[in-house]
Design a protein around this nucleic acid. Structure first.
Lengths: 151, 151
DNA sequence: GCTCATTTGTCCGTATGTATC
DNA sequence: TGATACATACGGACAAATGAG
């Protein structure tokens, strides 16, 4: 669970994995305010700030965290995270307009979250017109909705 | 034309602008081999490697440059650059299957290149099946061709 | 409005490891 | 082998945004 200085994995990736785990087990959570500052993480893990920043940047790209300059880094609520992932995949063409989304179960398993979170994310994106549901057929990517970053 | 240490723009963006200009005026060109090394650029502009790297990374994302690990950073031939930009836009949905491409003139103006380069890029992508032309109607994005990175 | 501490953003210099030629 | 270049990591510095007072 610690950091292996000698392993083949870069330190920043290992650190990202540790932080991701803490998000998953609730040690870091949206309602608890920001995660420890970069300086605090340097202190705890005995690594440089640039290394911490690399890890945090990676988790931002996964939408697990959201960093705000001058305030701190926050855990993204799970449903928002899932919604952001879906929007990303639409924007890079992994999911395409007119095509069905993977099943809730598949998304939940892949992202290692509950189906409720996936359902909530889909509900959000449906309200925004990014997705739409066809009775008995599944959820589809809508046409032409310029994927609006949520909030 | 130089680097303004005090301006509001990050240095790496300014440096990227300078390099882009040198590409445009032919100081750096594909047939001249790799652009100067990171160390040389650091030396010339008095900035750190990380800053140079940020600038070069940005230009890679624009397809102006292409970095090859262990070899160096090269100027992308203009027609390849335009082709790469078009492929990117298809993959993010800016250009969509079945829809017409903007006119050659519009693309040339926007990308600040000659119409010949745009024409050449379109020819490449047509050969690859990414685009197709309808007599008297224009050039369209083809269906289903998984945008193959050129080369 | 102002100052101040906290936090993130950018940058620098350096060092080591690895890939390519 | 040696030269060149990128990837990662360190430690330090100052700037910019935020919020508390």
């Amino acid at each position: 669970m610690g950091i292996d200085l000698l392993g083949p994995d870069p330190i920043y990736r290992q650190l990202a994995a540790v932080i991701r785990k803490r998000v998953n087990d609730g040690t870091y959570a949206p309602e608890r305010g920001p995660i420890p500052s970069e300086a605090a993480l340097c202190e705890e893990f005995g690594v440089s700030r640039n290394t911490v920043r690399s890890a945090v940047r990676a988790l931002n790209e996964e939408h697990v965290l959201r960093t705000v300059m001058g305030r701190g880094t926050f855990v993204n609520p799970i449903d928002r995270r899932i919604a952001a992932v879906i929007v990303d995949r639409i924007s890079v063409g992994t999911y395409r307009p007119g095509r069905a989304l993977p099943s809730e179960a598949a998304l939940a398993k892949e992202q290692d979250v509950g189906r409720d979170s996936v359902r909530s994310a889909i509900a959000r994106l449906t309200e925004d017109g990014v997705l739409h549901t066809v009775e008995g057929q599944g959820t589809f990517v809508s046409q032409r909705e310029d994927a609006a970053p949520h909030e």
